[in-house]
């Protein structure tokens, strides 16, 4: 579904609608309340890092943004459009599978466990969705894919299968795969948590490069150094709520809330 708003939004620039807007977003799994009224705003070109103890709802929030999880309460907008629903009059209508897919195609996501398609080479992984979902001609998709893989430092791994790659290389392919859809927003769900320590740097380098190019990014991470250096905003989440939020330097060096202090004293 392409609305007029969709076409206009890039021209609105930084002052326009935020890329992500959450208003008291709630999410339950059975009786467990995972998100309890999340309010936040991600501006265009902003890099937001989300930290916090595991089970705090960070990943769930990320998954709600591209509707891998359904929001139970509150409202969530991406690029000015409601996630998962269409509002008509006073009523909400669930989006059809096809409409949800069209929206997801514009949001890139990188997973903790890479989730590359093991039966495809790096190149095939990257061109699959552009060809099948966006109907880009194969030659054009391949050209972009090779560019992206080269930018991620994988020039000689284009035809390798995922199991022939190290974790860091796999994650860089996964980032290239997400970027091949030319997303307007990138979500990173603990992208370096499953990596050996010496491989973390190479993935963070690619992400740093991406942030510098002006991509809007929401990054769930445990890498405080990255959050401090690259992030525009740092959010500390615990028990399904945003406890504290602000410029990374302030939050990290001078946390206001007790829970943030307790968490940071253990991590830093």
């Amino acid at each position: 579904m392409s609305t007029p708003l969709d076409d206009k939004s890039p021209m609105l620039g930084d002052g326009g609608t935020p890329m992500v807007l959450a208003e008291s977003v709630c999410k339950n799994f059975a009786r467990l309340e995972v998100l309890r009224g999340i309010n936040l705003e991600v501006a265009r070109g902003e890099v937001m890092c989300i930290i916090g103890p595991s089970g705090g709802g960070k990943s769930t929030l990320l998954r709600c943004i591209n509707h891998l999880e359904k929001v139970d309460g509150g409202r969530l907008w991406v690029d000015g459009e409601l996630v998962g629903y269409r509002q008509n009059g006073g009523k909400l209508y669930e989006l059809r599978d096809r409409e949800v897919c069209a929206k997801r195609a514009k949001i890139g996501m990188v997973f903790q466990r890479f989730n590359l398609f093991p039966h495809m080479t790096a190149l095939q992984n990257v061109i699959e969705a552009p060809i099948r979902v966006k109907r880009v001609p194969r030659a054009e998709a391949s050209e972009l894919a090779v560019q992206l893989l080269e930018r991620a430092g994988l020039k000689d791994k284009v035809h390798a299968y995922p199991n022939q790659l190290s974790g860091g290389q796999q994650q860089r392919v996964a980032i290239a795969r997400a970027l091949a859809m030319k997303p307007k927003l990138m979500l990173f769900d603990e992208p370096t948590s499953a990596l050996d320590p010496e491989l973390v740097g190479e993935v963070l380098d690619v992400m740093r490069d991406l942030a510098r190019s002006g991509m809007t990014m929401v990054v769930v991470t445990h890498e405080m150094g990255f959050a401090r250096e690259v992030g525009d905003t740092l959010v500390f989440m615990d028990q399904g709520v945003v406890v504290e939020m602000g410029p990374p330097r302030n939050v990290l060096s001078n946390p206001q809330h007790q829970r943030t202090q307790a968490f940071l004293s253990k991590v830093l």
Partner: peptide, 12 residues
Amino acid sequence: GQVEAAQALGMT
């Protein structure tokens, strides 16, 4: 995870 990765790419 394979299904999620495919869904996140907008595949039906």
